[in-house]
Design a protein around this nucleic acid. Structure first.
Lengths: 224, 224
DNA sequence: CGTGGTGTCCCCCGATCGTGGGACAAATGA
DNA sequence: TCATTTGTCCCACGATCGGGGGACACCACG
């Protein structure tokens, strides 16, 4: 499909960018990647905005093939799924390197187009394998996330608004609070929640009450 | 207090009973205990009722000092906390040997007077140490339970009825269903739940909604 | 070109919740 | 002994839930 985007492995090298806010961990990750044949680390940064700025400054040909992205949510700094979506659209593959602290965030980034997830607790061999797999166009999932992907079957696909509504509602918000937070009318928020229920019911997991939603949202990784 | 109950270590031996439904695990536990100096295994059984029957048949002097009790909840066979309470009242110390499958049950048995908990995943040395400690009148807790005991501070003490009401209500039952299950009037069940809220509020953890209760009940080990 | 999913909004209505009172007897504990 | 806790029951009222119905526009997939 993306036959237009040229530099997939220019001069036999994959171009990799690393975004990770912890210096030590970043150094570690970078050194592991550098040691890999055919891999060139073209950017190291603390945050996604840094990377975006760097991309804007450089030529299109300098764009990386892969972004190894940490998902630490310390200091209020979070990763914006929309930014990830943009990068993916630009042909950059995304590998999440995470502590799995926030399952919902991992989900969002995955939905934004990331094609791999490794845990920092995984072995170096696993990290390398993940990098190779994602660069090759494949998907890579840590064992820790396997259980959730395995259950993906009986978990219905929710739309963006439905998921946001579920998260808020299942956290204890009233319908009115959900509506306000989403910037829609009460009836609309109600519809979202109703549709979540319908979808789960269609998947053979009827959720009637708010408590059911809370329990399920937790079990299915929508809440922490 | 129990200065009347004589045979605490008659002839230098502690009398121990083992109740565990899995034959292999029971054999293992019994052999570990037998290998201990000064310990005599006087009863092996599959269930608590078996032990009670055996106790009723024998003389008071044959009663054990310690009961090593498994908490497996397979095949619908559960452990009745009231029976445990009775044994404790008779001067028998209780050590729970569990897989920690059901935290609520562990809690109930602890409240019924058990003074020790070991996990089957603990080392043999730990099991032995736990046995000694409990026989000596002390308390023993697996590390796995330590986190919960540590948080015991900001978790208010709930009465039996309050805990039962919380468990049911937080699982999704309506007040009416809780009332029916407990065999009391709607208003009474309402009072129980209200008191749970009051206690948590007094402990600095206000719980206003049903979802709050569900979340907290899960976090505090009242639900699985 | 229709079908389905999505985003948005609207109405009704009975059930349930959350909060505020009050009462009283038994048990517990300081 | 007196205060607290517990178990039990009762009432009222506004907020919220849960289920049902309908509507319409957009967009994508086939």
């Amino acid at each position: 499909m993306d036959s237009g985007s040229a530099n997939e492995a220019g001069a036999g090298h994959w171009r990799v960018a690393v975004v990770e806010d912890h210096l030590l961990q970043r150094r570690g990750l970078v050194s592991v990647l550098r040691a890999q044949r055919g891999v060139r680390v073209v950017h190291e940064g603390e945050s996604l905005p840094d990377l975006v700025g760097w991309l804007a400054a450089g030529s299109a040909a300098s764009a990386p093939d892969l972004l190894a992205l940490d998902l630490h949510v310390d200091r209020g700094l979070s990763v914006d799924p929309d930014v990830v979506r943009g990068l993916v659209r630009d042909g950059i593959k995304v590998l999440v390197v995470s502590e799995m602290t926030s399952l919902p965030l991992v989900r969002q980034v995955l939905r934004a187009g990331a094609t791999g997830v490794v845990s920092k607790r995984d072995s170096i061999a696993d990290v390398v394998a993940a990098t190779r797999t994602v660069l090759g166009g494949g998907r890579w999932m840590t064992r820790e996330l396997g259980e959730f992907l395995a259950r993906e079957g009986d978990r219905p696909a929710l739309s963006d608004q439905e998921e946001r509504a579920l998260v808020l509602y299942a956290s204890g918000s009233t319908i009115d609070q959900v509506a306000t937070a989403l910037g829609v009318k009460r009836e609309t928020a109600k519809t979202y929640v109703d549709r979540v229920k319908s979808k789960y019911a269609a998947a053979g997991r009827p959720l009637r009450t708010k408590v059911d939603l809370a329990r399920t949202a937790l079990a299915d990784g929508y809440l922490d």
